[in-house]
Design a binder for these strands. Structure first.
Lengths: 201, 201
DNA sequence: GTCTATACGTGGATAGAC
DNA sequence: GTCTATCCACGTATAGAC
């Protein structure tokens, strides 16, 4: 699609190919800040600088806007996660660092992914859940491999998976760039706790 | 207040002193299930079996309904938490068990307490945050004492506090009575992970 | 592609009868 | 204490002009 780099509008109020992304970005910000149910299409439109009706050129409805944001987030998470092979300790460390950094970079997406599950239609919910499950399975495989090799002391890999993910994702509730700790320090501290929790010697 | 135990209505549609609690219970269930913004006063009224206008005999507005539920939950949490003295390891174990059991018993309250913070007015939000902070401080004191005595290997007690609470609260996202694991087993597994994470010998 | 206008439902909250 | 009736604002989504 052509992108108008000159800034010259081709028709009154037109923004050529950039309005679609702007709609998704405004929805992301507002859904994260106020919650899906509390955000009106009129508010999203105002944020973008168009009238409410114009939004329906970019999304069939509000539900699809939410679903597309969540699916995009989960697919990016799965696509960027580290490859799984080699030493389980090394893989676990990579996972911890990846999870913290990926989530710290996308606070709005993460917030929506956790808070707005119940506002998805049943079909859309099932799809997002499948993606989330796939991500968890990646960590569980690491823990199971490590336990089988005797380098982790994990009696129930599923419980340990959920515990580690909850702990790591919790960083997003308090971490702020420019705060007391750098992200490097946070990663180091969490790796230390995770390492000990799963019984690395 | 007098409670009518005979089942005989004193006025048409009256339930004497029990409508108030029924309103709060219906709001609790519905807010947890659908989210504060997605629940109408009419829906709460229908659940209770009265008309919408009657709700305003029990709450000045919808916001107060949410705030009262959250404040009640946090105050009960603080009132019931274990007393803090003695061996830090013992205190930490008590905390872990208490936190998991208290939260598992109240899934709706916990869900609301975490999900609906942004729907509180600024004044109400500040009050709930203060209570949450007080609860966190209780755990941090345990970790700091243990670190000072050399029984915990915790380099940053605040980070460790947040990590442990996130891990423990995460149980509520998956635990269901009658599932693969009993709550006793869950408590034992999480205590094992927490114990190791904070470096208990 | 965006606008204005609007259809149509539902929201929180209140008034006044009983 | 609850009801019915109502006010008025706002919600999603669509139609048709430009």
């Amino acid at each position: 699609m052509f992108i108008n780099l000159t800034g010259m509008a081709r028709t009154t109020g037109s923004h050529a190919g950039i309005t679609g992304p702007r709609v998704r970005h405004a929805a992301l910000r507002l859904f994260a800040q106020r919650g899906f149910a509390a955000v009106s299409m009129r508010l999203i439109a105002a944020e973008v600088g168009v009238q409410a009706g114009a939004l329906y050129n970019y999304t069939p409805d509000k539900q699809s806007l939410l679903f597309d944001l969540m699916r995009g987030h989960m697919e990016e998470l799965l696509a960027q996660r580290p490859d799984a092979d080699g030493d389980p300790v090394k893989r676990l460390k990579q996972f911890v660092e990846f999870h913290i950094r990926f989530h710290a970079d996308r606070p709005d997406e993460v917030f929506i992914a956790y808070m707005e599950l119940r506002n998805l239609s049943p079909e859309n919910f099932a799809q997002i859940e499948a993606l989330r499950r796939k991500y968890e399975d990646g960590l569980e495989a690491i823990l199971r491999d490590g336990a089988a090799q005797g380098v982790f002391a994990v009696s129930d890999s599923k419980i340990a998976t959920l515990a580690v993910i909850a702990m790591l994702t919790g960083v997003n509730t308090w971490f702020r760039e420019g705060g007391r700790l750098s992200l490097d320090e946070v990663v180091a501290q969490y790796w230390d706790m995770v390492r000990k929790a799963v019984g690395v010697a």
